[in-house]
């Protein structure tokens, strides 16, 4: 049986999966928190936060990548701090790719979760309060289960977005095979080389399969949850 993917291609796919996985997982708690704050709290600077969250969606990805480089690069304020105190270097590492992917996917994740939170009737949470549940318990036992479909949808959307992230990633962490060469970067690289179309095409197929898989999975999960809630 011929190899489906070469080692180099497989490396790019595996890296993309790893980057997307961690980007999604680590931004999820913050995403839920920000979505909750935007949906439920009235506070000074709410619109500013909203704008900030959505900025990566409307900025050219190159700009986002460059801003990340300025901030988290070895000479950036945060980058220097992380390097000196924790020995964490993000620029030109796969961790940097995960950061870039997380930032780019964040608005999609927050949007999906925020919609789910806004659909929860606050009266249910009030009722839970009269039954003795403190705010934290109300969130864990009522709000969280009810927004679970939104969280799953947001996470899958963010994962798919992270898999496809290109502009900010290549600007921030470049395109180093085995280090920062994600699936889209690899496709781009193959297309720059004469005769690389076949390799690029195989990766394109992988990208399509992953994207479709993510979509179907999110559909299936939200339906399963809806059925569970509606069922007598």
């Amino acid at each position: 049986m011929p190899e489906v993917l070469t080692a180099e291609e497989w490396q790019a796919v595996a890296l993309s999966l790893r980057v997307s996985f961690w980007a999604t997982l680590l931004s999820l708690p913050l995403g839920i928190f920000v979505a909750y704050a935007l949906a439920r709290w009235e506070f000074w600077g709410r619109q500013v936060l909203n704008g900030l969250v959505h900025l990566p969606l409307i900025l050219p990805p190159v700009v986002t990548g460059y801003l990340l480089l300025l901030t988290f690069g070895r000479r950036g304020y945060v980058g220097q701090f992380l390097d000196q105190w924790f020995g964490i270097v993000l620029a030109f590492r796969w961790t940097g790719a995960a950061l870039a992917a997380a930032v780019m996917a964040f608005p999609l994740m927050v949007r999906a979760i925020r919609l789910a939170i806004e659909a929860v009737d606050p009266k249910l949470e009030q009722a839970a309060g009269t039954l003795g549940a403190s705010r934290g318990w109300v969130f864990l036992t009522v709000t969280l289960p009810l927004i679970l479909p939104g969280i799953v949808a947001g996470a899958i959307l963010a994962f798919a977005k992270a898999m496809g992230e290109f502009g900010a990633t290549i600007t921030f962490v470049s395109n180093i095979p085995g280090q920062t060469q994600t699936l889209p970067s690899a496709i781009y690289a193959f297309l720059q080389v004469p005769g690389g179309e076949a390799q690029a095409f195989r990766l394109v197929l992988v990208a399509i399969v992953v994207a479709m898989g993510a979509l179907l999975l999110s559909e299936w999960v939200s339906r399963a949850v809806a059925r569970r809630i509606a069922g007598g």
Binding site: K123, L124, Q126, G129, T130, G132, A133, L146, R228, I229
Partner: peptide, 20 residues
């Protein structure tokens, strides 16, 4: 005293059962 510490059972007009 916050609502959750008052121990007042409340039956709302619209039931408000937890759907999940």
């Amino acid at each position: 005293v916050p609502a959750h510490l008052r121990r007042m059972g409340y039956v709302f007009q619209d039931g408000r059962l937890f759907p999940h």
